[in-house]
Amino acid sequence: MRRFNARGSQPIFTVLTTGMLLVSMLIVLFPFLYVVTTSFAPREEIVSRGFFVFPHRWTINAYGYLMSNRQFMTSFLNAVHITVLGTIVNMSFTSLMAYGLSKRWLKGRKALNLMVLFTMLFGGGIIPTYLVVKSLHLIDSYWSLYLTGAIAPFHLIVMRSFFQNIPLELEEAARMDGCGEWRLFGRIVLPLSLPAVATFTLFYAVQNWNAYFNAVLYLNDSDKWPLQVFLRQMMNEANDSMENVSGAFEYSPSVKMAAIVIAAVPLIAVYPFLQKYFNKGMLMGSVKG
């Protein structure tokens, strides 16, 4: 970190950036704390709204309740399953295709790029997609989720542009050494693109983790539904018939908030591990400018 200090100390600049970051952090933190602390608040305090940020007494009842709730745990594990396998599918499809399309010399590249871009704008909608999934006999299988969302065109395009930024000399040099495309991709390009790989793994993971509507659409077996379906059901706000709302079991606010926290924690917890890939200049060893 000395490196940055060596960039000449300019107090105004440092104070300004630090200050602005601090303010934005607080603005984010305050409402977020509301969610977290509500999940730890005892029922009486929520009922009387006797606190906003910190309850007087803390309890982990809400978490205990969720952990002992079989449906919650099943759907949580389903979500982990879907996220891990889905993200593997996403990253293999996307990185291979993005790498291929990053070759400026490739014949048909422009047509393929246009083909990808076009799908960002035009989609056939849910009915025809459902028919395809059905005719492939993927209904009620997690493969319906993995395959229908195998590539997000947006991620593909951005990833391609990351690959394109890798200096061509490197590729040339590797080829001189007799490296084939697969080895070039696996041994040189991917390691050099770790920030991009980390980013899009995270993006896809989050997307899979939050996937909701497709699960409801393609999975008829409620035991297979992921966490987000459970969560939505839990948050579901009253329809107009009041009786149904009150009649069906209702979760207390702290349980709802605890569920949100639990649902957010796995991916928030992953982040610090990925952060090292976002350090400026982490690639300097390999790229000689």
Binding site: M115, T119, F122, G123, G124, G125, I127, P128, T129, L131, V132, L147, T148, A150
Partner: peptide, 9 residues
């Protein structure tokens, strides 16, 4: 998964 369903347009 993208172009065949596009027929639905």
């Amino acid at each position: 998964f993208r172009y065949i369903p596009m027929g639905g347009l």
